[in-house]
Design a protein around this nucleic acid. Structure first.
Length: 190
DNA sequence: TTCCTGGTCG
DNA sequence: CGACCCGGAA
């Protein structure tokens, strides 16, 4: 649900959805139309279809790749193979659900790393994404447990402080490490 | 690269 | 009003 959709709009729908479909098995068992119903108002309805396909794949005996039936795999590579799971979601599930030592780059992290280390990189391009992911990977802490906190902190920094329109360098905890924040004239967001 | 949904914010 | 939102598929 959080793919390209704001948290504030997701939170309500998410709890409603979980109430209706407590597990992936419930989603897999349901008709596609019922899943679409529960998705109403969120937009990007291909995600609902992908979720249903994912649920059926994961709950089928020969589809659960390396994980037990009905459970999502913990390896980013295995997660990536599932419908609707891209690089970010794979990293997020691996890191946040399984505490794996996995990198994760969403729109917030990409913006933070760009401003901090490579201000002139174009985030939208494939090459820019490769650069950002390389930095994110190089920054990973030693253990999965610390990686959970690390990734969470990166995302929150982008969501609350280093926001899209205003960087808020005056209240940034890592300003001294940041190329943009440490520059006298670079307090505003490029 | 482009498309997909629509509320919100600067 | 345009850009943005815890992206991913075609």
């Amino acid at each position: 649900m959080l793919q390209q959709t704001q948290v504030s709009r997701v939170v309500v729908k998410y709890s409603e959805f979980l109430e209706r479909f407590p597990t992936l098995a419930h989603v897999a068992r349901a008709k596609p139309a019922r899943v679409m119903e529960a998705w109403e108002g969120l937009g990007y309805y291909a995600r609902a279809r992908n979720l249903h396909r994912l649920a059926r794949e994961v709950t089928s005996a020969n589809g659960a790749d390396g994980a037990s039936v009905g459970q999502l795999p913990s390896e980013p590579e295995a997660l990536r193979a599932l419908p609707g799971i891209g690089a970010y979601t794979a990293g997020a599930v691996a890191s946040f659900a399984y505490e794996r030592r996995a990198a994760l780059v969403d729109t917030n992290v990409a913006r933070v790393l760009k401003r901090a280390f490579v201000p002139n990189v174009q985030i939208k391009t494939t090459r820019g994404q490769r650069t950002i992911w390389g930095i994110a990977d190089a920054m990973l802490p030693r253990t999965g447990r610390v990686t959970w906190t690390h990734n969470q902190a990166l995302m929150e920094l982008g969501a609350l402080v280093c926001t899209a329109r205003i960087a808020h360098c005056d209240r940034c905890p890592v300003r001294s490490y940041c190329v943009t924040g440490s520059k006298p004239s670079g307090r505003r967001a490029p």
